[in-house]
């Protein structure tokens, strides 16, 4: 059997499906233009997330949410060893389309599903707003709209993929920081890019979410980062919660039986008391 990491769509019951598609986001060439944010909102008809000045560098979108499915982070790191004294990291974040997607696992209604491209998408007509997926996501991606309670997130532009178009954000990215493609082709490309940067002295360059052996079985959207993940607001080493679900159920069963036992014991105990 093929490891899940390589064929989530197949695991989800799609036979002869297209290859798994995803993003390699090379943050080292991101210029922070936010074209991706705007393209996402325009294409997916996402409303404004409010006009709130943040004081957090040039980031006034605050973070991913129901109405911000693509978010560009700005990190100012002062007084390094560079003679110009500062480096300004920028990176565009989206749903990771996890191989082992907690949101999808815990969804009681089946609203969240795995597409033939191996991506994870919400069916808005099925979602009942139970909100379970929200705390389940280890990356803080999916979120609820206050008005109707349903949840929203990046779909990797499922509708565009179905007509052979690349996702809106990747299409709009002027520097190819967001590279869309067949995941198996993106991974080696990304490794080569890291090697090149390392060689150029960018020793901190590393990939995030590319490995099928990580806590979520590898992400469908992975990143080249120039600093620790948490600096970008990403969890350093998340493990999908459902990996422990089996033992949770076992323990719940024991506890339940224990409860019956205790009830019976205390009742019988009385007779001879």
């Amino acid at each position: 059997m093929i490891p899940v990491g390589h064929d989530p769509a197949g695991q989800a019951g799609w036979d002869d499906h297209p290859p798994r598609m995803g993003f390699f986001t090379d943050t080292s060439v991101c210029i922070g233009c936010k074209a991706c944010e705007v393209a996402c909102k325009e294409w997916n008809d996402v409303p404004s997330d409010g006009l709130n000045f943040s004081g957090m560098s040039f980031d006034n979108s605050w973070g991913l949410g129901a109405d911000t499915r693509c978010h560009v982070a700005f990190i100012e790191q002062p007084r390094g060893e560079r003679e110009d004294g500062i480096r300004w990291l920028m990176s565009s974040d989206v749903c990771k389309h996890c191989t082992e997607a907690a949101c999808l696992d815990v969804c009681p209604t089946g609203a969240l599903f795995r597409t033939e491209y191996g991506t994870v998408v919400v069916q808005q007509d099925v979602c009942n707003g139970c909100g379970y997926c929200v705390p389940a996501c280890p990356f803080g991606v999916i979120d609820q709209r206050k008005d109707d309670g349903r949840v929203w997130k990046c779909t990797l532009c499922y509708d565009r993929l179905q007509v052979g178009q690349e996702p809106a954000c990747a299409k709009a990215c002027p520097t190819n920081s967001i590279q869309f493609g067949v995941l198996d082709e993106l991974r080696p490309r990304a490794q080569a890019r890291v090697a090149a940067l390392q060689a150029a002295g960018e020793t901190e360059a590393h990939l995030y979410g590319d490995s099928p052996d990580d806590g979520v079985g590898g992400a469908g959207a992975f990143f080249l980062l120039l600093d620790q993940p948490e600096v970008y607001g990403l969890p350093p080493d998340p493990v999908v919660t459902t990996r422990a679900l089996g033992s949770m159920w076992k323990r719940a069963a024991v506890a339940a039986v224990g409860l019956i036992g205790a009830a019976v014991a205390s009742s019988i105990g009385g007779r001879h008391g």
Binding site: G80, G201, L226, Q228
Partner: peptide, 9 residues
């Protein structure tokens, strides 16, 4: 390619 020598805060 970007310039080496940058260091984390």
């Amino acid at each position: 390619h970007i310039t080496p020598g940058r260091r984390r805060r």
